[in-house]
Design a protein around this nucleic acid. Structure first.
Lengths: 172, 172
DNA sequence: CGGATTCAGTTGTTGCGTCAACTATTGCGG
DNA sequence: CCGCAATAGTTGACGCAACAACTGAATCCG
């Protein structure tokens, strides 16, 4: 009982401190670049990208919330703001009249196509360029292991593939 | 000009997505545990820890802000709340009457001593336990490399050593 | 010495995320 | 078929961080 928490070893502490620093600075850096560039937060960008990659560029609010790891209230507020800017549209789902479908508009598509190059540059210059191919693989494994603890549900899995594509299209 | 952003390779994209997920979930997890345990945010906890480890348990606001990577307004607001809870005290610096010194109170020390075990447990269960010793070393290197890009000024360096110590004391 | 600039902090406003209601629809059990 | 729980989403209130404007003290400089 006197030693339920053996404190952290120097190695653990050093790695932990750096990880925390990255976790704090990275979101700010992403938001800053996207905000200055096109007036979007990173979350708004991911939301629009998810819609752009969806079938018919349309998704149910709940599905979109799960995909972007947002609570439903948060997504609702964000979508209201995006809709006010003409970047998305919302309309009731015909099959389930409780549900709401969201679609990205042409203006929304145009905006993320405008935003993407700068965002990719920021990702490279802030992170990827600092890592060797070996470290990239290690990062993949490490982040995966940590995610297994942080997100046992594995809800965040489909956000991917938004980056390895060329300009997004309907499907083909 | 047509290819200034070669998009991301599948490997890059996969690692990036996982890193972003960790960067989003980790702060929430820390805040949730500390908030439920002792009603502190992670930032407040780090602030109190920094004060506890400082000479005479006292620090200038500017120094504390630099150490915790906070803006001065943010720190000012946080310190006002902490002072209202009796966890810190503020008083004008005798040598420079522009400056304000902050000290952690005995109540503040007691609170972080109460909070530390649970926090360390959370750090372990959410991150460290998922990594092998090799991965811990890799994480240290990777996070260091990324920090070199995100924080070229190296402002976040002294937050360390708060974890490898036993219960904090003045100095000796 | 005296005015201007810089520095240290605080305060007010705005924007975003979370939490707690609340509405409306669906599906289930009797 | 009728109530009742569960689901989908919206809305409003509150808390915290960012930004800008402000006060007061120190420093620079002529």
């Amino acid at each position: 009982m006197t030693d339920p928490t053996p404190w952290l070893s120097p190695e653990e502490s050093a790695a932990w401190v750096r990880l925390v620093a990255v976790a704090e600075l990275l979101p700010s850096a992403l938001d800053a670049q996207l905000g200055a560039d096109v007036g979007l937060t990173h979350f708004e960008y991911v939301t629009l990208m998810s819609l752009a990659g969806a079938h018919e560029r349309t998704m149910r609010m709940t599905a979109l919330a799960a995909l972007t790891n947002a609570t439903l209230p948060r997504l609702s507020h964000v979508m209201r703001r995006l809709e006010a800017r003409g970047l998305v549209r919302r309309f009731p789902c015909p099959e389930d009249r409780r549900a709401t479908n969201a679609t990205i508009t042409d203006a929304g598509l145009a905006l993320i196509e405008q935003a993407a190059p700068g965002h990719v540059r920021a990702v490279r210059s802030n992170v990827l360029d600092a890592l060797s191919p070996t470290q990239l693989e290690q990062l993949y494994e490490i982040a995966g292991a940590v995610l297994g603890r942080l997100d046992p549900e594995e809800r965040l899995n489909a956000t991917s593939c938004q980056f390895s594509e060329g300009p997004r299209t309907r499907i083909a």
